[in-house]
């Protein structure tokens, strides 16, 4: 007997794509995030915090993959990776990864080059479409960077009174943090020999570190081509209602 959080539509399409659900899998990590003093007037990466966010997510993901491996799954779809800050402990955060383990019905292997199940945040519908376009998911890849954006000194602020001007120090800090997060995500995908990353989302959050410390978190599904596209030309169908109306 299997468990899954797939909707009926997703379940049917996953079946159409040649996969069967095996069960819901989960990994978690309750992690104490360390402390790092930032320099008030400097832009800098908070490496201790970046490493903490990385380590805890990796632990949660690896534990989920291990559960799927125990089920002899080919992959995990619909992965949700959440971070919750615990109210019962200072600097404690709960990292949870949850998804549905699936296996190919024809016995062909879709595991990663590290012989672990693939992971993906794609829905059942997206998974079906991706497989039909001739690509397969390789792994959920992510990049994280916790960054301290410099504060302005008193003299600097006084010099700016009455002037319209760009705050280049903020812009550069934002660029630096975002580029580091994206570079890390691309490196993860590159190590798994993926060709591209689809559905990239960039999340910016201050968590509990105050307004000048931000985390850039980039996440997407790394993909690789494995066959020619089997999709036929689409026809234009316009719904009579728009979502949200």
């Amino acid at each position: 007997m299997f468990t899954s959080d797939l909707t009926v539509n997703e379940f049917v399409l996953v079946d159409e794509a040649g996969f069967e659900p095996l069960g819901m899998v989960m990994g978690s990590s309750i992690y104490h995030i360390g402390y790092q003093q930032s320099a008030w007037s400097k832009n800098q990466e908070m490496t201790v915090l970046s490493q903490a966010m990385y380590n805890a997510r990796e632990l949660a993901m690896t534990r989920m993959e291990e559960e799927a491996d125990a089920l002899k799954a080919d992959g995990i779809i619909g992965v949700r990776l959440e971070v919750k800050h615990a109210e019962w402990g200072q600097h404690l955060a709960e990292f949870i990864a949850i998804g549905t383990a699936v296996r190919s019905k024809d016995g062909s292997s879709h595991r990663t080059i590290k012989n672990m199940p693939f992971t993906s945040d794609l829905s059942g519908q997206d998974f079906w479409t991706l497989m039909k376009t001739g690509y397969r998911p390789v792994s959920l890849v992510m990049g994280s960077c916790v960054y301290h954006i410099a504060h302005q000194g008193m003299m600097q602020a006084l010099r700016q009174v009455g002037q319209n001007q760009e705050m280049t120090i903020y812009t550069q800090g934002l660029y630096d943090a975002r580029e580091l997060a994206m570079e890390r995500m691309q490196l993860e995908a590159s190590e798994l020999k993926a060709e591209g990353i689809v559905g990239v989302h960039l999340h910016e959050s201050t968590h509990q570190w105050g307004s000048h410390v931000i985390e850039f978190f980039a996440v997407g599904t790394a993909v690789k081509r494995f066959q020619d596209s089997q999709l036929t030309a689409p026809s234009l169908v316009l719904p009579m209602t728009d979502p949200g109306l």
């Binding site: 794609l122 519908q125 997206d126 479409t129 991706l130 376009t133 994206m182 995500m185 691309q186 490196l187 995908a189 590159s190 993926a194 060709e195 591209g196 990353i197 689809v198 559905g199 990239v200 989302h201 997407g220 790394a222 596209s229 999709l231 030309a233 689409p234």
Partner: peptide
């Protein structure tokens, strides 16, 4: 990325990519 030293990445989701290819 253009030199293929790194994988390409895109904000487009799967149906968007399929239509883009079309």
């Amino acid at each position: 990325t253009l030199a293929k030293e790194l994988p390409w990445m895109s904000t487009l989701d799967i149906p968007d990519l399929y239509l883009a290819d079309e």
